[in-house]
Write a protein that binds this DNA or RNA. Structure first.
Lengths: 124, 124, 124, 124
DNA sequence: GTGGTCTAGACCACT
DNA sequence: GTGGTCTAGACCACC
């Protein structure tokens, strides 16, 4: 349910962040749920505790979770909202990329077709 | 015509590569045109020659230019085609992002609207 | 009358200490009154007895209560005085912060206004 | 000009953060100025580079500085504004403390006197 | 030279 | 058991 690729060029701690964010968005993790402990996860993933600490600290600074010393780390109340708002801003990212393609002479129809392709069929 | 931002977090050599690619795509540089020499450019941009060397080596390895020892470096015949093909692969990138947005519950209409926005009005 | 927030980042034992101190200051607890027993309180608050023990030990070391083996723990005679003296030292804390704000160019009037705001209206 | 107390209970990296913030507020460090490099500072202060890295990363996430890989770390344009706004919110902190003192029966005059004391005389 | 990431292993405070 | 901090030392990409 939570995996990392140690050979990827994207840093392990960012992979963890992305995974946790995904789990929150999908509802796999809900507000007030406990996140796996640093030590437990470090064993499971064979990753150094410090690396996990870094990932969790970053999640915390984004307001997605909070820590209770001596107890554990929990998904924050507003986490799903924060993530959804964040993703919505991805629309401007798509716009930017479409503009780039346009400048290379790629037709609008081709871009629209790609979007349609993403939205057809069942969810992955 | 060729500028770099030393305060940007994107590596200078990548900025150079992007600039050259842009100039080839826009026709500002055509096949067989000479690229500015490393020494000349390093003075113009106040950039370390090593950095420029790295950019040019990368361009060469992508088949976008070739060097003639003792003479200089020239835009290759196939450069525009290579770049256009490369950019077309951006379509799958857009598809991937659209799929992500879909999973967060963002409607297809919103994505299409973003694409339309990119394609309306004059070119930048 | 005595509550703790297990999700707060301030340690539970400190919350307990603050609560007891507050009750002494407000007169809810008077000298020679018995404090709730560790066992009883641990059940009431669903808190680990060790945590309560730590809070009580700290209160004792501050001279706010004393334990009578085999009987219980009682608010000390001097407790209210000690606490009031302790709080009065908060004045120098305020002075320190005001000095900081001054160094950032915040006007004295603004600070005075904040104090006035705290002292107007009924007690919470 | 930049010192840390390794025996303090406040974490070294927070001491560093506070020092840098102070230097920005006082004008000792201006926007676009370079911060001391991680390695250089780690030698100067006899502190592990990782600890400094942590302090700098935190400063960066607060928008106070930005890093240019291979070049260095620089004070951001908006740093002074961010800090000033942050300090202004200290007014509500003062209000909170004043309210506490009030509840212990300390007169408003005493609090006002403390503020006056902070604002009289030359700047430290 | 710079910053960025990671590992290994230690100690502390809190529950 | 939990999270938080720190050290020591390594490797990488970038300039």
């Amino acid at each position: 349910m939570l995996e990392v690729d140690k050979f990827s060029r994207v840093p392990i701690y960012e992979q963890i962040i992305a995974e946790i964010e995904r789990m929150i968005l999908s509802g796999e993790l809900s507000p007030k749920d406990a996140l796996p402990s640093v030590r437990q996860l470090s064993v499971e993933l064979s990753v150094n505790p410090n690396t996990l600490q870094k990932a969790y600290t970053e999640l915390e600074s984004r307001g997605l979770c909070f820590s209770v010393p001596g107890s554990g780390r929990y998904v924050s109340e507003k986490a799903p909202d924060i993530l959804r708002a964040q993703k919505r801003s991805g629309l401007s990212e798509i716009e930017r990329m479409a503009r780039e393609l346009r400048e290379c002479g790629i037709e609008k129809d081709e871009v629209i077709a790609a979007v349609n392709k993403a939205y057809e069929g069942g969810l992955s």
